[in-house]
Design a protein around this nucleic acid. Structure first.
Length: 420
RNA sequence: GACCCUUUCAUCUAGUGGCCAAGGAUGCUACGUUUUCAUCGUAGUCACAGAGGUUCAAAUCCUCUAAGGGUCGCCA
């Protein structure tokens, strides 16, 4: 089973870098016919301001589907049990150093605790003194193979006497992760490069626990730049498919510019992902979003604006050049069908046009339509086209009216209305 | 401070010692096709971070320098 873990901290919204890792996990799991597990790291109830399921899942689900979900809060007793067993086998020790540390200093256990005799230990338990549990650092460097970066060696001192259980009984991320991967029979872990040290710690912990199954690790390079939260991207009108498309093009050369998740399953290759850091390029995302919108079914697209008319979809697509996201389209599309403010310089003309159009016969094409208006009003050039554009679109800019007309023709009396 | 990772066009990348005076895709610029836009076609634009080695031969291996990122908590 491939594993994916998310920090449950609601202090930071899920961003593009997180989603990329989630996607790649899901993709590789799919390729291998394995499951994709979403692990909620809710070990510390005090640290949770919001229910992670409410904040993470709705966002994730639009882009990736998981097969299973696991909450660390459900197996807190197991972490403790295993930590204690390590102490009994002299792989770990009970640490009574004070958790309070002066503001600027890095806290470190002075090592004295490591030499507790079993008798001293019993007394600590008996007196109910607060204690934490730490693993004894490895006596040799921890070595593992990373799919992208090759062999990684971590020195014992870097790993340190890693803390397993806090005084309050909450397990550390590495400890909980090590245990979960072991008990869950996890085959592959794909995560951020920043967690590389954690990997070494987990390997050490697991070997102390006597677990020998090898786990494949891939540490992905970070995405740098101003990473927007996924939530924000949705609000700005990016399609989940476009975001998925963008994220999966990074680190390799896809066979096509535009593709979907299921298509990527066929060619994506974890082994050949680039290990170089990647700069988030908003332009590229925008371009892909435009392209995904363009390829959307006309009728489905119109549905976003409560129509079920392929013509409206085609109308919307005329605006894609200037408005590549749904939010930007919102500045153009709804007002076409809303009553227009008939004020200012062209107000009178707009009112005239509105009533003229309301009583006019239907016209097949734009030329016949304008010919009729010219004939009826005696206006021509800008003095006609500007108010006409305003009464039809509510704006003074946009695609050519002749392009727009065929699609709004059947809605013309609804379109050409003045606000009361 | 210590340790780790990374560094090819504007962007994403191909490239694991000769096929690389570096290829593709996207972008951009022209031109063409097209009823406009889009599509499509053609052409152009643009890169091996720097310096030293090793070698008959280096984008590719080694060393140093620089830049970017990361990790060193009873932080999530």
């Amino acid at each position: 089973m491939i594993v994916l873990r998310f920090a449950a901290s609601p202090s930071r919204d899920l961003h593009l870098g997180d989603l990329r890792i989630a996607l790649i996990n899901a993709l590789v799991a799919r390729q291998r016919g394995e499951g994709f597990l979403l692990r909620i790291t809710d070990r510390d109830p005090k640290a949770l301001a919001e229910d992670p399921e409410q904040t993470i899942q709705p966002i994730l689900e639009k882009c990736v589907r998981h097969d299973q979900i696991f909450h660390q809060s459900e197996s807190l007793h197991r972490y403790r049990q295993l930590a204690v067993s390590l102490v009994e086998r002299d792989k770990a020790f009970v640490c009574t150093c004070s958790p309070e540390t002066p503001d600027n200093e890095t806290y470190a256990c002075n090592g004295a605790c490591q030499n507790h005799t079993p008798k001293e230990r019993a007394r600590i338990y008996e007196e109910k003194r607060p204690y934490a549990i730490r693993v004894i650092r490895p006596d040799a460097p921890v070595v593992f193979d990373d799919v992208l970066a090759g062999t990684i060696t971590t020195h014992p001192d870097t790993i340190g006497d890693h803390l397993l259980l806090r005084t309050d009984g909450v397990p550390s991320e590495a400890f909980a992760g090590a245990v979960d991967d072991m008990l869950g029979g996890i085959s592959t872990v794909i995560r951020d490069e920043a967690e590389r040290l954690r990997t070494a710690q987990e390997i050490h912990i697991r070997s102390q626990l006597g677990y020998t199954e090898a786990i494949t690790y891939a540490h992905l390079p970070p995405l740098s730049g101003e990473l927007p939260a996924i939530k924000t991207l949705f609000e700005e009108g990016f399609l989940p498919d476009a975001i998925v498309n963008y994220l999966l093009t990074l680190g390799q050369t896809p066979p096509a510019k535009i593709f979907t998740f299921p298509e990527a399953v066929a060619w994506f290759d974890l082994q050949h992902l680039s290990a170089a850091p990647i700069v988030y390029d908003p332009e590229a995302l925008l371009e892909l979003n435009r392209e995904h919108l363009r390829r959307m079914d006309d009728k489905a697209l119109s549905g976003l604006y409560r129509f079920a008319d392929a013509d409206i979809g085609r109308l919307i697509k005329l605006y894609l050049d200037e408005a590549p996201t749904l939010r930007e389209l919102d500045e153009h599309i709804p007002q076409i069908f809303a009553p227009k403010p008939c004020d200012g310089e062209h107000g009178d003309t707009m009112r005239t046009l509105a009533s003229l159009i309301a009583s006019a016969p239907p016209f097949d094409d734009f030329e016949a339509f304008t010919a009729y208006l010219i004939d009826q009003t005696g206006l021509y050039g800008d003095s006609l086209s500007i108010p006409l554009r305003r009464i039809l679109t509510g704006r003074t800019d946009g695609p050519a009216l002749s392009d727009l007309y065929p699609f709004i023709r059947s809605y013309i009396t609804e379109v050409a209305r003045c606000q009361p």
